[in-house]
Design a protein around this nucleic acid. Structure first.
Lengths: 115, 115
DNA sequence: CTTTTATGTTAGCCACGACTTACGGTAAGT
DNA sequence: ACTTACCGTAAGTCGTGGCTAACATAAAAG
C-alpha cells in the first residue's frame, strides 16, 4: 500500500481488462461504492472487489472508507504518470518517423530535396 | 499510407503483455527487423513475429518490406489516438476529484449520500 | 535451379487470470 | 446482543493467451 511507485507498465496491465476499463468509466463522474458498481458492471460483487483491488494496487484508484462502505475514486497522480509515459513514447516515435521520412526522401531521387 | 487503426481498447489489450511493451520500447529509436528484435527480447523469433502481428493488427505498428526483411515501426497516429482516449477517460475524473475536494473541505459532517 | 537468409504459420503444451460460490469480518440500526 | 448491510478473501473451475518446436513461404545470392 505504501508503494507509491506506480509503474506505467502495471497501470497498462490493469487497464487491459475490459471489466476494469468499464469500472474506470463509471468512476469518471466521481467516487462510487462497491455495491453501486456491481449493479452496473455485469459481473458479481466479489469480482468487482477483486478488480478494485488490482486497480488500487497499481495506484490508479484511491479508497476512502465511510462507515461500512468503501468509496473508490480515480487517482489523478497516477493518471499524470501514465500520460507522461505515453507522451515520451509518442515524442520518440514522431522523431523516428520524421527521420525515416527524411531518409526515404533523400534515397529516392524523385524530387531531390534533402532538406 | 495511414491505415485506419483499431479501437483504443485493442491497443490497450496489446500493450498489456510485457514482451510487447519491450518490443515497443525497442522501436522507440526507429524501425527494426524481426531478427534484430529477437536478439534483444528474451523469447524465440517466432514469438516475436506473433507479437509483431498483434501489434500491427491493432494499428500500433507499420510494416515496410525491404527485400527479405520486414521493418516494423511505431505508428504515431495510433499512439495519438490512444492518448486522446485516455485523456477523455480522466478529464471528467479530474474535475470530479476537484469537486470532491471542495465538498469535503466545505462540508465537515459525514453526511450520507442518498443516491 | 539450388541454397541461403529472413520471416510467417501451425500445433500443442502450459501458466496466468477472470469469474463464481461460499465464508469471515466490521460498522450501523433496532 | 441480535440483525442487517456492505465488503474482502479463499478455494476451485475454466477459458484465454503466450511460448517453443517444427513446418511452410518468399526473395536474394551462387
Amino acid at each position: 500500500m505504501t508503494y507509491l511507485s506506480a509503474t506505467p507498465e502495471a497501470v497498462l496491465t490493469a487497464l487491459a481488462d475490459g471489466t476494469r476499463r468499464h469500472i474506470v468509466q463509471e468512476l469518471r463522474g466521481g467516487a462510487r461504492s462497491v455495491g453501486d458498481l456491481a449493479q452496473v458492471v455485469p459481473v458479481s460483487r466479489p469480482a468487482v472487489s477483486q478488480h478494485l483491488k488490482v486497480l488500487s494496487d497499481c495506484g490508479l484508484l484511491t479508497v476512502t472508507q465511510q462507515g461500512t462502505r468503501r468509496l473508490y475514486a480515480i487517482a489523478p497522480d497516477t493518471v499524470a504518470e501514465l500520460r507522461a509515459y505515453l507522451d515520451g513514447l509518442w515524442d520518440d516515435a514522431l522523431a523516428a518517423f520524421a527521420a525515416e521520412a527524411r531518409r526515404q526522401a533523400a534515397a529516392k531521387p524523385q524530387g531531390k530535396d534533402p532538406k
